[in-house]
Every structure is written in structure tokens, then in C-alpha cells.
Amino acid sequence: RIEKCYFCSGPIYPGHGMMFVRNDCKVFRFCKSKCHKNFKKKRNPRKVRWTKAFRKAAGKELTV
């Protein structure tokens, strides 16, 4: 099963990425440490230029 990165919305293939479980049992999956570090710094994915959330908000990503 291919999961989605919580921060950048990129695909996470089986055996890859990192799973972060908070004390309230909420699960966050990250494709790379870059995404996990930005999440820990409480960065907003919509303001980080390389994420899909930014591209969609800025009108750069074509949605079908």
C-alpha cells in the first residue's frame, strides 16, 4: 500500500519513510527526514515552496 506524506503529500512506498506517533495516538507518515524536520519546526506546508500544498495554493499545480 502506498501511503502519502503528511507534510509534502509525496508517495511513500512500503519499507520507506518514517512513521511518527504522537501521545494522543495520531499517526503522521513522512517520506524523508526533510519533511519530518519541517514538521517538528511547526512549519506550515502551504508556506514551504517545494510542497504540493504550496503549489496547489499558489495555482501552479493543475488539479484534475
Rank of each mutant, 00 (worst) to 15 (best):
26 K>G: 12
44 N>S: 08
43 R>T: 15
54 F>P: 15
48 V>K: 06
56 K>S: 11
13 Y>Q: 13
21 V>P: 00
28 F>S: 03
25 C>F: 06
60 K>A: 15
38 N>A: 07
35 C>E: 00
46 R>T: 14
33 S>F: 02
43 R>F: 12
12 I>N: 00
62 L>E: 15
47 K>P: 14
46 R>L: 12
39 F>K: 02
34 K>I: 07
55 R>I: 10
29 R>T: 08
7 F>W: 12
42 K>N: 10
34 K>Y: 04
10 G>V: 04
46 R>H: 10
28 F>V: 11
22 R>G: 15
48 V>H: 11
40 K>E: 15
42 K>Y: 07
42 K>H: 01
54 F>L: 10
44 N>K: 05
32 K>T: 14
45 P>F: 04
43 R>L: 12
39 F>E: 06
55 R>Y: 13
36 H>G: 04
23 N>E: 13
45 P>A: 08
46 R>P: 14
61 E>M: 04
19 M>P: 03
18 M>L: 10
57 A>Y: 04
30 F>M: 04
57 A>F: 01
29 R>P: 08
15 G>D: 10
1 R>E: 15
14 P>W: 01
64 V>H: 08
23 N>I: 08
18 M>R: 02
55 R>S: 15
48 V>S: 07
45 P>C: 04
51 T>R: 02
31 C>F: 00
38 N>W: 01
16 H>I: 09
34 K>S: 11
1 R>N: 11
61 E>S: 01
24 D>A: 01
40 K>Q: 12
23 N>F: 01
39 F>P: 00
35 C>M: 00
35 C>V: 00
26 K>R: 07
19 M>C: 04
28 F>W: 03
37 K>R: 04
32 K>E: 14
18 M>V: 09
31 C>Q: 00
34 K>F: 04
27 V>F: 02
62 L>V: 06
32 K>P: 01
21 V>T: 07
41 K>I: 02
33 S>I: 06
60 K>P: 15
49 R>S: 15
64 V>P: 12
26 K>F: 04
58 A>F: 04
50 W>L: 12
45 P>Y: 03
64 V>T: 09
56 K>I: 11
50 W>D: 15
52 K>I: 14
37 K>M: 06
24 D>S: 00
56 K>W: 11
60 K>Y: 10
9 S>Y: 07
63 T>P: 15
14 P>K: 03
49 R>L: 13
27 V>M: 07
48 V>Y: 15
37 K>F: 04
18 M>P: 03
62 L>W: 05
50 W>V: 06
24 D>Y: 00
20 F>I: 11
58 A>Y: 06
28 F>T: 05
45 P>I: 02
15 G>E: 09
6 Y>C: 12
14 P>G: 03
28 F>Q: 05
47 K>F: 07
29 R>V: 08
26 K>C: 04
33 S>N: 05
64 V>F: 04
61 E>I: 05
51 T>M: 05
37 K>C: 04
30 F>N: 00
19 M>K: 05
24 D>T: 01
60 K>M: 14
53 A>E: 15
60 K>T: 14
27 V>C: 02
31 C>W: 00
24 D>K: 01
39 F>R: 00
25 C>V: 05
57 A>W: 07
15 G>N: 09
15 G>L: 02
53 A>T: 08
27 V>T: 07
47 K>S: 13
61 E>P: 10
36 H>F: 06
20 F>G: 04
38 N>S: 08
30 F>S: 01
20 F>E: 15
2 I>A: 06
50 W>K: 05
19 M>L: 08
56 K>N: 14
32 K>M: 06
25 C>A: 11
60 K>I: 12
62 L>G: 15
49 R>T: 15
17 G>F: 04
30 F>H: 00
13 Y>L: 09
42 K>G: 10
33 S>W: 03
25 C>G: 11
37 K>V: 10
31 C>L: 00
44 N>Q: 07
2 I>K: 02
38 N>I: 01
38 N>K: 03
6 Y>P: 01
56 K>Y: 15
52 K>Y: 11
28 F>M: 12
7 F>H: 10
51 T>Q: 10
41 K>R: 03
17 G>M: 03
2 I>G: 09
64 V>E: 07
15 G>V: 02
27 V>E: 12
17 G>V: 03
59 G>M: 07
2 I>D: 10
15 G>I: 02
34 K>C: 01
7 F>D: 12
43 R>W: 13
32 K>Q: 13
50 W>G: 11
25 C>N: 13
32 K>C: 07
21 V>K: 03
31 C>A: 00
34 K>G: 07
29 R>Y: 11
43 R>E: 15
41 K>A: 08
13 Y>H: 09
25 C>L: 08
2 I>P: 08
46 R>I: 13
14 P>C: 01
22 R>S: 14
64 V>G: 13
22 R>K: 07
7 F>K: 01
63 T>Q: 11
14 P>Y: 02
51 T>W: 04
10 G>C: 03
41 K>S: 06
52 K>G: 13
61 E>N: 01
20 F>V: 10
19 M>S: 09
7 F>Q: 14
36 H>D: 06
17 G>C: 03
62 L>R: 10
39 F>Q: 02
43 R>A: 13
42 K>C: 08
54 F>D: 15
21 V>R: 02
31 C>M: 00
63 T>M: 12
16 H>V: 07
63 T>W: 05
58 A>T: 07
21 V>C: 02
21 V>E: 06
64 V>L: 08
39 F>Y: 12
60 K>E: 15
16 H>T: 12
35 C>H: 00
38 N>C: 00
23 N>V: 08
35 C>N: 00
53 A>P: 10
27 V>D: 05
60 K>N: 13
27 V>R: 01
39 F>G: 02
47 K>N: 12
34 K>L: 08
53 A>D: 15
63 T>S: 12
60 K>C: 14
8 C>R: 08
16 H>F: 06
24 D>F: 00
32 K>I: 00
32 K>N: 15
24 D>P: 01
7 F>M: 12
49 R>F: 09
51 T>N: 07
57 A>L: 05
6 Y>M: 11
20 F>N: 02
18 M>H: 03
52 K>T: 14
19 M>R: 04
44 N>C: 06
53 A>V: 10
51 T>A: 07
25 C>P: 03
44 N>Y: 04
44 N>A: 08
61 E>T: 01
61 E>F: 03
15 G>F: 01
44 N>T: 05
41 K>T: 08
47 K>L: 09
20 F>C: 03
27 V>G: 02
41 K>V: 06
61 E>A: 02
64 V>C: 08
49 R>E: 15
57 A>M: 06
17 G>A: 07
62 L>K: 13
52 K>P: 14
49 R>V: 14
47 K>I: 11
7 F>R: 01
38 N>F: 02
29 R>G: 06
1 R>V: 11
39 F>C: 02
41 K>P: 01
20 F>Y: 06
1 R>K: 11
27 V>I: 07
13 Y>T: 13
58 A>L: 04
50 W>I: 05
21 V>G: 03
27 V>N: 01
19 M>G: 04
35 C>L: 00
49 R>G: 14
44 N>P: 05
2 I>F: 07
51 T>E: 14
6 Y>D: 05
44 N>V: 05
43 R>D: 15
33 S>R: 01
19 M>A: 09
61 E>Y: 02
46 R>S: 14
20 F>K: 02
47 K>W: 09
59 G>N: 07
59 G>W: 06
45 P>H: 03
14 P>R: 01
23 N>A: 09
26 K>E: 15
22 R>Q: 14
26 K>M: 08
13 Y>P: 11
26 K>N: 11
43 R>Y: 14
32 K>A: 12
39 F>A: 05
15 G>H: 07
38 N>L: 05
21 V>Y: 06
17 G>R: 01
15 G>K: 01
58 A>W: 06
40 K>T: 13
53 A>C: 08
53 A>I: 05
43 R>Q: 15
32 K>Y: 01
13 Y>R: 06
27 V>W: 01
35 C>D: 01
16 H>E: 12
22 R>T: 14
23 N>M: 05
25 C>R: 06
22 R>H: 10
